[in-house]
Amino acid sequence: MPLDDFDRELIAATQGGLPLVSRPYEAVGAMLGVSGERVRERLGRMLEAGLVRRIGAVPNHYRLGWTANGMSVWDVDDTQVDTLGEQVGALSGVSHCYRRPRHLPTWPYNLFAMLHGRSRDEVRQQADTIARLLGPACRSHDILYSTAILKKTGLRLTPGA
């Protein structure tokens, strides 16, 4: 759905979070000079259109005890990557799974799967499961562990853009 001015204002007003008050949509409406009803109606449409994935809590995996967060990356045969990607995405422990471009010769990997565990051992076990699933279609892989969150703010629309 193309964004209109109200959408932009609504995104700008809520991208940092909803006010934690009894009537949060009313509070957002008050900021924008519209009713809470109008805010709820528009957010509902954004949910339907998929422009809003969900309205809820965004956790910090580290603070939940998921201290081992690995981006596993795989060099998978191009003719099989889409079929296998679906299967990898369905494994428990995989939170995001995407096909992305290679940057040869330094970066041969075209399948990315985010893994979360309470230890690197746990993440390695998850990676072993993926390796077994991919079988000979996978030529090589790596796991890039995150060691610090440098920024996590989510989307911020640039003013005037």
Binding site: D7, T14, I55, N60
Partner: peptide, 14 residues
């Protein structure tokens, strides 16, 4: 424990 609470925008849809 939470980095944010609110709508998660999927800007690709726009």
């Amino acid at each position: 424990v939470l980095t944010r609470f609110g709508p998660l925008f999927q800007i690709e849809r726009a």
